[in-house]
Write a protein that binds this DNA or RNA. Structure first.
Lengths: 254, 254
DNA sequence: CCGTCGCATTTGTCTGGACATTATGACCTG
DNA sequence: CAGGTCATAATGTCCAGACAAATGCGACGG
């Protein structure tokens, strides 16, 4: 277990390394730098020591340090410039959107999410859904329809299709946890999601369920999520009350 | 200039390497694999040769090959699994959203975009815009308002604020090119963008400009873009006709 | 006084190797 | 035949070093 002070002049940043831990060294470094940025020990604009010096101080090789820094650059926390150095980004950039469900997002924001399961049953898929999920038309998939509340108010109407046998989903589970959390718990490893975001006016039945007037603007999201091997694991078609919700996305150019 | 056949059994993928080119080797490899995937020479699910063999065939080191593959994994084209190998993702995943403007997107989609510049002038910024752009309240910034058409139809109403002195923007330029293209051409290097996407009903003046009825659903996007060093270079507040446009986003979990 | 050239600094790219960790399937055992 | 065990294969992590390229700044010269 090493412990070294980084970044000479500007701040005193201590980094612990535990070589016996299964956590990769580059990740230990990255996490602790990120933590220092979050705490404010590394102010926006602060320059890190150069990679070689850093590697030296920590007793690591330069590629390992580079991997740690690269990880943070990809997350948008650091910026590198050849011939200049590595700096903490100025604007406070929010964490890049991850593969999370609305439920997780709400709970992280301190809201009190609740869910009403409207439908949860195998249904035969039409041609479009079959093509999306990579199934034969006419076979069955799990159909799921939920109404999501936040702070006691209806917020979103969620429709999902999932391949059968992916996870044992009970209505009770779905009322106390998010779909993504349940899938992850069942060993499903989601990797890529493709979303299409749009808007439209509320129809009559939607309006009633969501407590809006007919014609009220709704935010729509259609999302397909793929796992490890590129197999579709979930297809969702959701509508949100635009008056109560918006989506946040962070883009990072390599 | 080397030229080697890759991927033993499944397909015949030739990769040219030009060591005298200034283009990094890992990038040459990545581009050509990506091209093969786009062409279909590498079908979804196809397994690549393992990294060591690949490195051997191309006369490169393993880290270089890994860098090429990592680049494609980050873009969502490939999937790696330890102990198994590297595969082309199954679902045809669209290209991850880059830092492009609506104009570029439209032109790439084969549409014929047109722009009408409504306002282009320095204006003193209020407190909110000042905080976003990192300026003092009351100082001036460039205010820009445009109406964007596609296929002859009005599509979006775009409002932008930019720090002064960033680039010389003429109304003529803005009518023939996208804002992002102009900024890039002026040497501005955009790196991170933060977007908030929502929806609301059209107001009267918006509706008139966009050719919609009052109350029609509009897709809204508020975006702040930061450069290299984390300085804000652009803040936009845009509304799109939901009936004619939707946004696409691809998320990739590392 | 100003511009240009060159140098030092720093990240970018690349090499060649070593060992660890994790899936997968074949094999052996109960 | 079922189950666990072990070998194998592939990616993940890490090391030590070399040269290239870009940037910024200072020194030199016009």
């Amino acid at each position: 277990m090493t412990c070294v002070n980084l970044i000479g002049m500007t701040a005193n940043l201590a980094i612990d390394l535990d070589r016996s831990s299964p956590v990769p060294l580059y990740f230990q470094v990255a996490e602790q730098i990120a933590e220092a940025i979050r705490r404010g020990d590394l102010a926006p604009g602060a320059r890190l020591d150069n990679e070689i010096l850093l590697a030296d101080k920590l007793g690591l090789s330069r590629p390992t340090i580079r991997q740690a820094i690269q990880y943070l650059v990809d997350k948008g926390l650091l910026v590198r410039k050849r011939g200049v150095g590595t700096q903490v980004v100025h604007g406070q950039v929010k964490r890049s959107v991850e593969l999370t469900s609305l439920y997780d997002d709400l709970r992280r924001a301190g809201q009190e999410p609740a869910t009403r399961v409207i439908a949860l049953e195998p249904r035969s898929v039409d041609e479009e859904i079959a093509a999306i999920l990579g199934l034969e038309p006419g076979t069955e998939a799990l159909y799921l329809e939920r109404l999501r509340y936040a702070a006691g108010e209806p917020l979103a109407l969620l429709h999902n299709w999932l391949p059968l046998g992916l996870a044992r989903l009970g209505a009770t589970d779905l009322e106390t946890r998010g779909l993504y959390e349940l899938l992850r718990g069942a060993g499903v490893r989601m990797r890529v999601a493709n979303q299409r975001i749009g808007a439209r006016a509320a129809g009559q039945s939607e309006a009633r369920l969501l407590g809006e007037r007919r014609g009220a603007p709704l935010l729509t999201m259609i999302r397909t999520t793929y796992d490890d091997q590129g197999r579709a694991v979930e297809h969702g078609s959701h509508v949100y009350r635009a008056s109560h919700y918006s989506l946040e996305v962070t883009l990072i150019e390599r």
